[in-house]
Computed example of a mutant assay.
Amino acid sequence: MKYPGVPTGNWRKSSYSGGGEGNDCVEVATSPRRMSIRDSKAPARATLSFPADVFACFVGAVKLGAPAG
Rank of each mutant, 00 (worst) to 15 (best):
M1K: 08
M1T: 12
K2P: 14
Y3I: 15
G5Q: 11
G5C: 11
G5K: 10
G5L: 09
P7N: 03
P7Q: 05
T8A: 13
T8P: 06
T8C: 12
T8D: 11
T8N: 09
G9A: 11
N10F: 00
N10E: 01
W11M: 00
W11Y: 03
R12F: 02
K13N: 07
K13Y: 03
S14K: 00
S14I: 00
S14W: 00
S15F: 00
S15P: 01
Y16E: 02
Y16N: 03
Y16D: 03
Y16I: 00
S17F: 11
S17T: 13
G19A: 08
G20V: 04
G20A: 07
E21M: 11
G22Y: 01
N23M: 14
N23Q: 13
D24R: 08
C25S: 12
V26W: 05
V26T: 11
E27N: 09
V28Y: 01
V28I: 13
V28P: 03
V28F: 06
A29D: 02
A29Y: 00
A29I: 04
T30E: 12
T30S: 06
T30R: 10
S31L: 01
R34A: 15
R34I: 13
R34M: 15
M35H: 11
I37E: 08
I37Y: 05
I37L: 13
I37F: 08
R38A: 05
D39T: 05
K41F: 02
K41G: 05
A42G: 07
A42E: 14
A42N: 15
A44I: 09
A44C: 12
R45S: 15
R45A: 15
R45P: 10
A46L: 13
A46G: 13
L48H: 02
L48I: 07
L48G: 08
S49N: 12
S49K: 05
F50T: 09
P51K: 05
P51H: 12
P51D: 11
P51R: 10
A52Y: 02
A52M: 09
D53V: 14
D53M: 09
D53T: 14
V54S: 11
V54F: 11
V54R: 10
F55T: 03
F55N: 03
F55Q: 01
A56Y: 04
C57A: 15
C57K: 15
F58L: 06
V59F: 09
V59P: 03
V59Q: 12
G60M: 04
A61C: 09
A61N: 11
V62D: 09
K63W: 06
L64N: 14
G65F: 08
G65A: 07
A66P: 08
A66K: 14
A66I: 14
A68G: 13
A68P: 11
A68M: 11
G69K: 10
G69Q: 05
G69P: 01
G69D: 04
G69M: 10
